[in-house]
Amino acid sequence: MKNLLLIGLVSITSTASTAALASGHSMPVADAWSNITWDKTAKDMPKGDYARGEKLESYGLCITCHGEQGIAPTRNAPNLAGNTALYTYKALMDYQSGLRNEGNGKASVMHAATTPMSKQDMADLAVYYAAQKLPAPTGHYTPPANIKKLVTKGDVSRMITPCASCHGVHGEGRDITPALAGQVPAYFIRTMEAYKHGKRTNDIHEGMAQFTQDLTDAEIQGLAEYYANLMPKHPSHPAGKE
């Protein structure tokens, strides 16, 4: 726990400066979330309108990179289908405020894409994407024992709690903890690396980053494969069918 607290302290000071140094481009400096400020924000989230979200998917050009119904066509963009509404809502807010910037230029398109959005727009998109479904994974995959253990049991010696305890046994996510089942592996890896290297700092009190510090690159790769191959709780097609 010592480890964790220490990192937590460091992170508070580093969050603001990361944003400030983000780039020569104009990325605003945003305040980090506390549990209190986030809880209030989540409570005040407008009721999302599915139909408006569906329109905004095209009008807002989300569909260009994130694909139809939030199923990403390349390894560049994450799948948005089936993620929790709160996670998507928070991600959009954090891109808009500049809190999620991931270093020079790495999130500037999402910052631009969210700049015109109102909170209502974000809620609409969040609700729309939460209702979309990812296809069942194809192909055969057997998780290596060490990866399976990290997911279900964690690693006490490194104070890594099991991924499933927050992200769910189906990788379905909960509230602001994102769904991971079926996620694009390249996106998964770079997200974990960004957390690990202190470049992604929009989690509350390093709620995620703390678990990435001690993961090896090979473990991150293994987890990416595990989750890419995990059956979503509600797939759009049953396994084996397209």
Binding site: L61, G105, S108, V109, H111, A112, A113
Partner: peptide, 18 residues
Amino acid sequence: DNPYYRHIRAEVAKNWQR
């Protein structure tokens, strides 16, 4: 009048230059 086109395209210009 679609602000998304204007914002995203300007950002793409910077990405492109790099």
